[in-house]
Design a binder for these strands. Structure first.
Length: 174
DNA sequence: CTAACTAAACCTA
DNA sequence: TAGGTTTAGTTAG
């Protein structure tokens, strides 16, 4: 597992990855120390892999490009953030949900219920809430673009203020 | 295995 | 619109 702290206009964000892709990407913190500190509890709670391990660590992530694109994001530029994700730490259901979320483009939103239908669990909107709540690869897996059916915010692990702020960057006022 | 959680949605009044 | 009911998956015991 590789680690780094990258600098963005919004602060310092901690990142972890394997040869397969990103495992953790936190929201920006005010200082490098805080960014590193916030990485620890996430890694401690990382569940064991559900699918096979990865051969050859250390390829995967172009950290400079990541830093550049995340910075662009916080400057309000439309970026894809199409970096590889290491899905192997998620259960089957959560992986399916988060892969659908991964595909939601900048500036667009989806409801929990719609994702539930898309992964073949109609009526499982609440379970989808649990799944997106387990996302640790913020921004790259844009779980902030998942909102409630009635157009209200729903929830967000890092606080609704962050969710509102991220959506606002993308031109969505809720 | 059951019970108790969710970042939900629906139905009814 | 408010309030209760139903829902699917995960996790703790």
């Amino acid at each position: 597992m590789e680690k780094a702290v990258i600098e963005t206009p919004a602060g310092f964000t901690g990142v972890c990855w394997t040869g397969a892709g990103l495992v953790v990407l936190n929201l920006p913190a005010p200082t490098v120390d805080e960014a590193e500190l916030e990485l620890r509890p996430v890694l401690d709670r990382l569940p064991s892999r559900t699918s096979g391990g990865v051969a050859g660590e250390g390829g995967g992530i172009d950290v400079k490009r990541l830093e550049s694109e995340i910075s662009q994001y916080f400057r309000g530029r439309r970026v894809d953030l199409s970096f590889p994700v290491d899905w192997s730490y998620f259960t089957e259901f959560r992986r399916k949900v988060l892969e659908k979320v991964y595909a939601v483009p900048w500036g667009q939103v989806v409801s929990y219920g719609r994702i539930a239908v898309e992964v073949g669990s109609p009526g499982g909107a609440r379970a989808v809430g649990g799944a997106v709540g387990s996302n640790r690869v913020l921004l790259v897996v844009p779980c902030h673009r998942v909102i409630a059916h009635d157009g209200t915010l729903g929830g967000f692990g890092s606080g609704l203020d962050w969710k509102r702020r991220l959506l606002r960057i993308e031109g969505i006022d809720i």
